[in-house]
Design a protein around this nucleic acid. Sequence first.
DNA 1: CATAGCCGCCTTTTT
DNA 2: GGCGGCTATG
Length: 727
Amino acid sequence: MTDASGYVMRNAAFKQLTPSQQQAVSQIDGPLLVIAGPGSGKTRVITYRIAALIEAGVKPYNICAITFTNKAAEEMRQRSEALGASSGIHISTFHSLCVRILRQYADSANIKSGFSIFDTKDQSKCVRQAVKDCGLDTSNFAPARMLNAISALKNNLEDVDSFKATADDFFTKSLSLVYSRYQDILSKNDAVDFDDLLMKTAFLLRDNPDICAALGERFKYLLVDEYQDTNQAQYRIANSIASAHSNIFVTGDPDQSIYRWRGADIRNILVFEEDWPDAKVVKLEENFRSTPNILGVADKLIATNRRRKLKKLIPTRPQGKDVVVNVFNDEAEEAHEIAKQIEKLVAEGVSLRDVAVCYRVNSMSRIVEEALIKNKIAYQIVRGVEFYGRKEIRDMLAYLKVLANPSDEVSLLRIINTPTRGIGKTTITRVQQYSAASNISFFEGLGKAQQIDSLAKAAKSKIAVFFNMMEQLKTGLDGKVASLAERVFVESGLKKSFQIVGAKTQDDSVLENVGELINAAAKYDQQTDQPSLVDYLQQISLFSDVDVYDPSTERVALMTLHAAKGLEFENVFIPGLEEGILPHERCGTDEDEIEEERRLLFVGITRAKSGLYISYAKYRTIRGQLLHTIPSPFLYELGLNFSESVQENQYCYDDIDVDNDINDNEQPTQPFFRDQLVRHRKFGLGRVKGFEDMGGNSIVTVKFNTGQTRELMVKYAGLSIESGQAK
DNA sequence: CATAGCCGCCTTTTT
DNA sequence: GGCGGCTATG
């Protein structure tokens, strides 16, 4: 094998790599950890490495590369194709890989191979039902909260039984009931959620050494990108597959770990050397992307974090423009000035495709959009309104899902009366009762509707029409998806109903979107060897708009900081450096979470090649409330002489007391001051709006994020003061 | 049974 | 400020 890699050594392109990059490329067998900083040419290293493997005689078929996003997978495919080394290599996300494995070993995994994959909205429906079924109140046990908790359990490989055993207080006991019921509902639907894909695969590999060995045989070389973002389930899956041969190659950067909230465990990368004692470790510390100005700022910021592997950012580019920090009055002005600055850049010859605006939360996109529209600047939102989240698309897909998997009751309930065909709640309940009593699925119940005595004659005939239509559509299942989708569109009556609405509102975007869906299906039919409806639906469930970003168009890119990972731009704007936004208020005082927010900003900063514009607004309207903001503590950590660097904007109005209901000159001895962030056990996060000093009976007025303003007795309120404020 | 309008909950980030 | 779910009304 060394001979073959020697061939790579002689390759001219290979010689252009730095010594550490060469190291990372040329090791063929055994475990290898590459700690790769931002802009270190990591993607290049991975593709070269794939080429080196193939030149060393490894069959493409035996190579499996895992990424976190479909977009990263697509890019890797293209890049390895450019090296003439793509066909046969398995390149996909963890989730896609799991779908494949689960379908192949459906019996051992105890699921049907035609399983539906439920997205977040489907999950909410199910968990809400589960909470109700358990006799719990959906306001005390908010479905979203339950779902988050269940998701966290699954990512940590806690199944229903193991969690039940450890649940000891009221909340965890209730949660375990809901979890159990939720899983029952999913299984009744022959459905899995995103987390199940991982958990079920991890358990499948744990419990079936033969399957594990077979996969190790199939995937003799395993590459995992962004290893710092693996959660427990993904970590186990990767380790299981590689256990037989130890050919596991992972790359990552602990400083860019930003998915803790979905179970990513930074420890996975930190303990790699313990897991694989003969692992080689290569650090890629040179940065080929950003100017020293930008890297200096990034380095200062991240140095504040304690939980990390020490790593340098070594600049290779010449000194560039200063990093700009701006302060604005409010978010509208901030957005407007960003637009103006973009205009300036364009005047200097910068292309719009070299500009990105990266914000903490999606909701911040709108104000930026408005400003860009006003200034006639073209933009594209990377993952705005998700295509597959649109109502019309979900309706169409629900029909297809029911055709592929009649047990999918969630989808069936969505479409049974969409468009309206006179099948109402009462009818549905009666069929459901009948189906439950006769131990058949809801869809089968519809087929037997004529035998259900409680149903009215009219209801029976309406059901018959619907049921026959679905049966009729099923006869067209020949693998090709596009033609079927077209038929569904027409025969379901959706087309007609959308046309009516479209004519009324003068808006045919709905029809266009369905057209786009059918086009996409046609593309799938064309590009896939053995197209099938089940395969199509399972794939599509793992896609979102993230993958639609088109770097070739002449537009400014708008995206969240999370979505920005892996991308680079000549110029990057990061607005909203404010307490509560970045770091986000949800992370509270938890130091680990604050560190993650810091990494998030680090990721944002290191996207910029030469121009970096950071800003915050003194006032910002959040959920309809005008709030006086506090600058983000991160601003002080950037190593810029902050007070001097901030160019006070000429339009700045002075700190006017907006509500005018309290004297600003409070005595420092008072325990509470205006705009202080406080947390209440029940009402959550809020801001102090007033304080009446009455000794032991002092009253504090707090405006909570729920929108309520409350007067609380200090001695009873039990308010805790949120730390992390401006120093 | 269908629809309009109201109420409450919600939003961090993604597969 | 927006969506989804629930309720009152036709």
